[in-house]
Each structure stands twice: as structure tokens, then as C-alpha cells.
Write a protein that binds this DNA or RNA. Structure first.
Length: 494
RNA sequence: GUUCCCAUCGUCUAGAGGCCUAGGACAUCGGCCUCUCACGCCGGUAACACGGGUUCGACUCCCGUUGGGAACGCCA
């Protein structure tokens, strides 16, 4: 029987979860769910300086919002320090690691020199050349040091890689790796905090992770990690390094100098901008993966059904805002009117619209009217505001084109009396539509003239959805009132 | 500089040697629909980076060039 699939998402809580991270989380989640596996959430907060509780909370909130549920965790590395120190001792006992006393300044100078000499800036192992006695003495005297992993001078390290490189593997020359540091500085009595390449390996091994989907920027870390798995005698997971999402021809990042705050990378900010989780997942999935039948508008369920590693692409994709928006609009249209009432509620309220003015049925009608037009949830308040606030001004262009028309006020007057003459039971879309048609017929004026005038009078705008629907939602009294005030306005034009 | 990765329309991509006169989607440009806007529908413009091989045949395989990207942290 095959081993149970176990994947994980292991963000560091040093900021908000961003779109790239979401994609990584999504692929790990997909793979676990698809294979009846386990998805683990682990917070990598060993960097006490930069990690914040707020970020952890944000990440968890983001994951929940996206619907990426996890089976185990969240684990916090900061609460697992004992485990790392135990493992550190194992490595030290084996002689796989050694203490180094170099200061950051010294290391920087070494790197600088290597760069000048146009050589690969790897550690020159000067700490390894210290005598045993000297090392012991310096440690005993309380001097700070870090632990470095001793990388073999010769041979290759193979990483089990399913995507990048040729074949199913990837070979790195050991001589190019360099002895990397696995803990922050510590003393004999106060051990240094574990660093990424160390804590990550220990956790992935202990949590029995079988597959790691992560960004390609981690590829250079991988041989180091494989070396550590080997040193512990742990099994190495399968890696799938995904291409990096680009924006402006650079890795997508909030630190990009061309970063445009209108298009945030933070997933929670996208949420607040009115993007839907399923649209976000859909769009992100297609950045590096393609559907077997080239379908592009997919529910999470459909992605789950058809996802496979062999349809993953290797080239770095570009983040296309237009396509993201288009995908969002599609998912929006797929929502029921009732769902949309709920989804848009926070946006409507934030815009100060008083939803209690209408009953649920009317609100649903509004959604039905606008969901073809809006691309994000945030666009609904603006699109529907005329239902909540009677127009006090009218669009200039419309005034010019329609109100300054010869008989605008006469047309409005007869329209008003027509509507006032309607029975309450007639105030439904179909009947209004028929009555309007009859009215147009009887007056002998083209709908193309009557329509725009009525629309402008009722909404203040030249662009809005079906007239009959507007009238139906507005009701007889409000409709009549708006027509009256528009007539007054037209009168004031002369 | 070193190491590694990548390379099809403007963008995301399909393409596993003949199905390719290279398909789809977004964007864009026309047109239709229509009381407006949008949706929808129809149509157009638009790509295999280059050079060598291998092969009867290369977008597909190999090598090189060029181009792009990433990493080179006591961040993750």
C-alpha cells in the first residue's frame, strides 16, 4: 500500500499572506485533497525579530477565507524549540556540524572579497581550521557562535524534483554549496534559534511530509536540506518547485519599486477589494497549470478533479490583472442573487447604503440587475447607489442630450401620470414593461428618446440597467417623486 | 561574478516528430444584439528567439548562442 500523502504550507508570519503564497498553499492543499492525504499548516516563526502574532492571525484568516482547510496544525516553530535543540545535539555528536565564531562584518568582508575576485562567495571554513582546544576555550568563555553544517567537498547532491530540470532528479555539485549556517548566534548556555534550512527539515521529516510544492526560489536551498535529511537519516520528500509569479518582469512583490497599491499582493486586501476566493484560486491555478481540456473558468471542485503535476508549466508566468478581473466577474455571475446579497452586504454598508430600505426580494432583484455588469463585489454599491439615494444632480451629458430635448418635460409629465395610474398589482417588471411599451406606442415617440429621459430622471445617470426593473424596485411613490423632481429640474433649465 | 532554472501571439497557455495553414483564453480592433451600460454572439490583427545538428520529416529531440528569471543572509 502506498504511503499516505502528506503536504504542508509553511509560511513565515512576517507580513500578510500574498498571492504567490496563496498559490503555493493551494497546490499543496490540492495535492493532499486529491490523494486523500493530509494537509498541514505550519507557521515558521523562528525569526523573533520579524515574526508577529498579527501576521499569523492574518495568514490563518486568509486560509479560512480561501477555504483552504488544514487537517493538522497550525504548528508554531517557536513552540518546538526543544525538538530542534535535540536534533542539533545529534548533529553535533556526529560531527556533522561545527561552531563558527565569525562576526557578520567579517563574513560580509569575505563575501565582498569573493565578489571582487569574481568567485562564488562560499564560506572558506576558517572556523573549521581552529584547533579543538581553542574552540572549546572560546565556547567555555561564553563567546557567541553559530553552527555550520559541514558540506562534503566532493560529489553531487541529488534532489528528488518532479518539475524543474531534466529527468526526475536534479544534481548539484557539492563544492558549490558551502557550509551553511543552521542556527542564529548563541552561547554555551543560551543556544541560538534554529534557522530555516534546519527547522524546516526537522519539521518536514517529523511531520512525515511526502510532497513539497514551493516556489522556485527555494531550489538553491534544496541541496542543503537534502544533505540535512541524510545527516539525520530521514527520508527526503518529493519536491515540486513551481515557477515564480512575475509582475513587471520581476518577482511579484510588495517591495517592487513599481508596486501599484491599486493591485495589492496581499490576499486580504484583495478580499476587501471585492475579489472572490474561488476566482482567486481559479486564476492562480492557471498561472503554471492548465486544464486537460483547456477550460479556464473553473470551480475549485473542478480544479480538484482535474489537477495533475504533469500539467504543470516550468516558465515563470506573468500576473495579468485583466484576466484576474475577468475570472472574478465570471465567478460573480455564477453566484445566486441571494448569495450576492450576503456577499455584497459589507461593501454596501461600508458605502453607507441603508439596506433596510428594501426587503430581501428587492435586494435580490438589484443583484440580478447588476451582476452582469460588476466585476468585483466592491463595484456593487456604486452601481446600485441610486436605489438608496434619490438623484440630486443629473449627469451632464445626459442633461445635454435628453433633458434639453424639445419635449422632455411633456414626456416626463405623461410618464408620471401613467405610472401614478398603475394599480399596485401592476408594479411588476412584466406589466411595467408592457405599459411602457404601450405608452411609447401611444405617444408616438420612440423608445430611444423616452427611455434615456426616464432613466436619467429616475437614476440621475445615463447608464443603468433595465428601466422596468428600476421602476419595479423603486415602487410607485418613489418613481413618481423622482419624475416630479426631474420635471422641476428641466423647468429650471429654461 | 558564481550556481541553478526557463524560452509558442502584448499576456496566460494548448501542443509529448507528421493531426500545425500552430488551437483556446485575456487584452485589443471591427460588427451584431439593444432604451443606455454591460453581458452575449460573430469576425479581425497577433507567436514557435536565433544558429547548428538528429530525422524522410521538427514548435516538438540534442548542442550552442542570445534573451529572461532566481539564488548566492546570523530571512523564509
Amino acid at each position: 500500500m502506498a504511503k499516505q500523502v502528506r503536504t504542508r504550507f509553511a509560511p513565515s508570519p512576517t507580513g500578510s499572506l500574498h498571492l504567490g503564497g496563496v498559490r503555493t498553499a493551494f497546490f499543496n492543499w490540492l495535492y493532499a485533497r486529491q490523494n486523500g492525504g493530509v494537509f498541514v499548516l505550519r507557521i515558521e516563526d523562528t525569526d523573533a525579530e520579524r515574526s508577529t502574532e498579527e501576521s499569523s492571525k492574518g495568514i490563518i484568516e486568509s486560509m479560512k477565507w480561501l477555504g483552504l482547510d488544514w487537517d493538522e496544525g497550525p504548528f508554531y516553530q517557536s513552540q518546538r524549540l526543544d525538538i530542534y535543540f535535540e536534533h542539533l545535539k545529534k548533529l553535533a555528536d556526529k560531527g556533522a556540524i561545527y561552531p563558527a565564531f565569525d562576526t557578520p562584518e567579517e563574513l560580509e568582508a569575505m563575501r565582498e572579497e569573493a565578489r571582487r575576485a569574481k568567485k562564488n562567495p562560499i564560506y572558506d571554513r576558517r572556523a573549521l581550521r581552529l584547533s579543538k582546544d581553542e574552540v572549546q576555550h572560546r565556547i567555555d568563555s561564553g563567546e557567541e557562535f553559530v553552527w555550520r553544517f559541514k558540506v562534503p567537498d566532493e560529489g553531487y547532491t541529488e534532489i528528488p524534483e518532479l518539475l524543474m530540470g531534466t529527468q526526475d532528479e536534479h544534481k548539484i555539485l557539492n563544492s558549490t554549496i558551502g557550509d551553511f549556517i543552521i542556527t542564529r548566534p548563541g552561547t554555551k548556555d543560551k543556544p541560538g534559534m534554529p534557522l530555516y534550512n534546519f527547522a524546516c527539515v526537522v519539521d518536514d521529516a517529523l511531520m512525515k511530509i511526502t510532497h513539497v510544492f514551493r516556489g522556485m526560489e527555494h531550489l538553491p536551498n534544496t541541496p542543503k536540506q537534502v544533505l540535512m535529511y541524510n545527516a539525520f537519516g530521514y527520508e527526503v520528500p518529493q519536491f515540486i518547485h513551481m515557477p515564480i509569479i512575475m509582475k513587471n518582469n520581476k518577482k511579484m512583490s510588495k517591495r517592487d519599486p513599481d508596486y501599484d497599491p491599486r493591485f495589492p499582493v496581499s490576499i486580504l486586501e484583495r478580499r476587501d477589494l471585492g475579489y472572490l476566493p474561488e476566482a482567486t484560486l481559479n486564476f492562480l491555478a492557471l498561472l503554471g497549470w492548465s486544464h486537460p481540456e483547456s477550460q479556464e473558468l473553473l470551480t475549485t471542485e473542478e480544479i480538484l478533479k482535474t489537477f495533475s503535476v504533469d500539467r504543470l508549466n516550468k516558465a515563470n508566468p506573468n500576473f495579468d490583472e485583466d484576466k484576474y478581473m475577468h475570472t472574478n466577474a465570471w465567478h460573480l455571475k455564477n453566484k445566486s442573487d441571494a448569495e450576492l446579497v450576503a456577499l455584497t452586504k459589507p461593501f454596501m454598508e461600508k458605502a453607507g447604503l441603508d439596506l433596510s430600505m428594501y426587503d430581501e426580494k428587492n435586494l435580490e432583484r438589484m443583484m440580478a440587475m447588476e451582476k452582469e455588469r460588476c466585476h468585483t463585489l466592491a463595484q456593487f454599491p456604486e452601481a446600485l447607489s441610486y436605489f438608496f439615494v434619490a438623484p440630486s444632480t443629473y449627469e451632464e451629458k445626459g442633461v445635454e442630450k435628453s433633458f434639453k430635448n424639445e419635449n422632455a418635460d411633456k414626456i416626463l409629465e405623461s410618464a408620471a401620470s401613467m405610472i401614478l395610474g398603475l394599480a399596485d398589482s401592476d408594479m411588476v417588471k412584466e406589466t411595467i414593461d408592457a405599459k411602457l411599451a404601450a405608452f411609447v406606442e401611444a405617444s408616438g415617440i420612440k423608445y430611444g428618446i423616452v427611455g434615456p429621459i426616464l432613466r436619467l430622471a429616475l437614476t440621475g445617470r445615463t447608464r443603468s440597467p433595465g428601466l422596468h426593473e428600476v421602476i419595479e424596485v423603486l415602487g410607485k411613490t418613489e418613481t413618481a417623486a423622482r419624475l416630479q423632481s426631474a420635471r422641476k429640474f428641466i423647468g429650471s433649465l429654461a
